[in-house]
Design a protein around this nucleic acid. Structure first.
Lengths: 331, 331
DNA sequence: AGGGAAGGTGGATACGTTTTCATGAATCTC
DNA sequence: GAGATTCATGAAAACGTATCCACCTTCCCT
């Protein structure tokens, strides 16, 4: 059975060639900016316009053995930070006319591996990822010639990355807290933030405050998990006087848990949150935060992955401590 | 010049066929679930596993004249509502193993058209869109055989859609406000929400409150635009006593503008916001909202577009009024 | 004027897959 | 037992493009 519908068939490069009275090779050359005589170029362009011709990405991709566009892997698109990062990637990709394929890993290495597989299957050759698993997981992808750029976190030294300067932000925040007299400061982090945790303990000791491993807690990339971690921390360690939340979901969870347990911010507990979000100002009390340039991280990562040329090892973007009203001197 | 690298070449169906000692057609059949003798099937599967073969989506797509996967067009991924919607789409798509290509329209019909063009170029045949332009814009896409499902808004009757039951939520909210004695109720909406606006005025008159066109204001899909609209409304119409914000960004803007202008919520102004977001509870005061099942909208839309079978015209999901503390009786 | 360089042009090929079609073997039917 | 039917199988075609290569024209230089 042949369900051919007259108007349905896609106009191909062959149609354009016929209409213009030239060979398909010439059409291809003209359209991809190759050399051609002025007269020929004009004829081809006219024909293409008249037939409303759009080259099929399918044919091109197969021929070139690669899919254009870029793959983007984030832990959770619902998290404002990653949403903004995604927005940055999209805005850069748009200026190159490249489509972006989005995948959500949920901070689960297994899902991440699965998604990488899908990308390879699609012959995507450019990927921006907020890695969840360890570096080893990316070995097959790199061997397959995948062009990878990490964002927000780095798990391999041989892959370029764009990150916010956590370390500096963290130091500013801790100096601020210690300056207010706090000593028992907890870190509420996500899995996969081992670097941030390390920076936390190091900085703390360098400020003369002994690190207490019991004050470092981790949550998975979900609201429930974040709340459980925050509530657990507050209940088991009533002695702590300040909390550093490693993300806006964690911060939200901390505020919620504190209210639930009738812990008053900032009177009983000082709180600083990684990542500035619009509602931090609306919150009661307004939250002091370490602002991160999420959008820029995404944009720069996209630039890095799209401009194949020279590849710097790593880009570090500045963070900023925004003081609002969620911290007070230790009582 | 031939930059052939031995280990680099992708293993193709041909390699598998050779290894298994069968023809490529047989391999293809086995892998896509066609009929084959048990012994052959086993040999092929073994060979495929041993070579770590993954069929190239490129070849398949070209052959089948369609790209798998689904395109998703949202106004703004930074908006929690659309982020959750996207999450729903992704979670459904994942269970089908289909990649999702994301585009951001910024509520700009021109950009929307551009993105549709990109999708057609990629031969994407399945699209979920929160439409920004008018229905006409989709005519070429539909003619090209694109399988479209609208989400959150509908602009064509001949395209299936998944929407939240704005009308009901709106009625409940307005009944609540009118019950509190409010008469001068403003609507702070986005462009592209003409239906919601219509429902607003209709419902209002049906409740015996005369509609005032001056109390309906629109903003674009950006934080700045939202703030400008909210501030403008509050300044020009000091007589209003309640505001219905048509999205969480608008709600945020309203709270901010009110603070700026020293308008107290809920004493001077009652506020109800479309779409429940985590921070609505953290806000001061906690915001009364019309909760929308954003994630479900996305999930159902994905189901609709992936299951080609029977296609219901429209799916309407329930909304819910969540009363918190941002509304008070009119003074 | 003749030889060579340079550049425009089109035919042919390859990319990896699915699907059609023909072939041959095996089983079933009367 | 002969014809009909089913079934597994592989060769070949097609999808739309970019690129290699050979050809042809034109122009320049000696």
């Amino acid at each position: 059975m042949n369900n051919f519908v007259p108007g349905q068939r896609r106009t191909t490069i062959k149609d354009v060639a016929e209409t213009a009275g030239v060979g398909v090779a010439t059409v291809s050359r003209v359209l991809s900016g190759g050399s051609a005589s002025a007269e020929t170029r004009e004829r081809v362009l006219a024909a293409a316009a008249r037939l409303d011709y759009r080259p099929s990405a399918l044919g091109r991709n197969l021929r070139q053995q690669r899919t254009g566009g870029i793959g983007l892997l984030v832990p959770d698109i619902t998290d404002s930070f990653y949403a903004r990062l995604t927005d940055g990637v999209l805005s850069c990709a748009r200026s190159y006319g490249e489509p972006v394929t989005l995948g959500v890993t949920g901070d689960d290495p297994e899902r991440e591996a699965e998604l990488i597989g899908t990308l390879i299957e699609q012959s995507m050759d450019r990927v921006i990822a907020v890695p969840s698993g360890d570096g080893e997981m990316w070995a097959p992808a790199l061997r397959a010639g995948l062009n990878v750029v990490f964002a927000d976190r780095r798990v391999r030294a041989d892959v370029p990355g764009v990150v916010a300067d956590d370390r500096a932000g963290l130091r500013t925040a801790l100096e601020y807290l210690v300056g207010l007299g706090h000593r028992r400061i907890a870190f509420l982090g996500r899995h996969g933030q081992s670097q941030r945790v390390a920076a936390f303990t190091e900085t703390l000791t360098s400020l003369g405050v002994p690190a207490d491993p019991g004050l470092v807690v981790h949550a998975r990339a979900s609201r429930d998990s974040a709340y459980a971690a925050a509530a657990g921390l507050l209940q088991h360690r009533p002695d702590l006087t300040a909390v550093l939340a490693g993300g806006n979901m964690l911060g939200e969870a901390a505020v919620l848990a504190a209210r639930e347990l009738d812990v008053r911010i900032p009177r009983d507990l000082s709180l600083i949150m990684f990542d500035d979000v619009p509602w931090a100002e609306l919150c009661s009390p307004p939250l002091t935060v370490i602002a991160q340039p999420a959008q820029d991280v995404g944009y720069r990562a996209a630039e890095l992955v799209l401009r194949q040329g020279r590849r710097p090892r790593t880009v570090t973007l500045p963070t900023e401590l925004v003081v609002r009203a969620s911290c007070a001197p230790r009582r």
